[in-house]
Amino acid sequence: MKLVTTRHLFSLAVPLFLTAAYLAPLASWIHNFGSAVDSRLLMIAPKQLWTTIIYSSAATAIAVALGGALAIYHRFLVPDGRRWLSLLVCLSLFVGFIARNFAWLAILGFIEEGLSSVLGVRIYLAYSAFAVVLVMTSALVPLAFFVISNGLRPLRDEQLEAAQVMGVAPHQLFRAVIVPIALRSASLAFLLILAIASAYFVTPRILGGGKVDFIGTTAVWFLNHGDSTFANQLGLTLLVPGSLISASLALLVMRWRGRQLGF
């Protein structure tokens, strides 16, 4: 009897890859940097962790709200319109994230100039917390759109027609049928995007102007300035809230999958 069959090899491919490429580097890294705590960490990490969580949560919440509205609108478009809207959203991904940050810097500069010539007072938009949230949101809306659009697939016209036949008014129908289905995927999108947003360091570096430093930005700064031990310890600090979000999302997915599979 063969102990290892082709099927076993197929099923083990992903777990083996995850062990070698995910668990092994992470475990050895935590083992090496997890025990010693630098005194600077207690001064820097809590404030920056707070900044990271607050700004990434704000950007994520706005992105999910806008992406959700876009996804619901997309759901009710004519088929041709759906294709065009998806293409337009995809188009933004083509030009790259760092280049879009450069573009936003210039756009905010133009808006600043326009506002100052109209109002007569200089209003600083670039290099501020506002700019960081604005640009992060712009990058995160497409992700929210794709996740929520996917989650809206179970919404069938028959459901809506049935509710309509039963005499439900349009605004009630939106609140009682469409929003609950969208909320399920929106909560998934929120956690998923929050995890991604909390690790952003490009936008705070380019548009924060040193006023909004995420943990990632500071870790990269220390890494570039030769203090890799402290950079690694900062990275490790980010892993803790990241893991909490991961665990809650994993539970959510397990529950959702369990319900689907009939556990």
Binding site: S198, G235, A250
Partner: peptide, 25 residues
Amino acid sequence: AASGASILLVILSPVVSLALSYKYF
């Protein structure tokens, strides 16, 4: 269910931490 959740865990680990662990490893 377990494999699906473990694959999704990857994207939820902060990518900065993962990249730092890769650099060290």
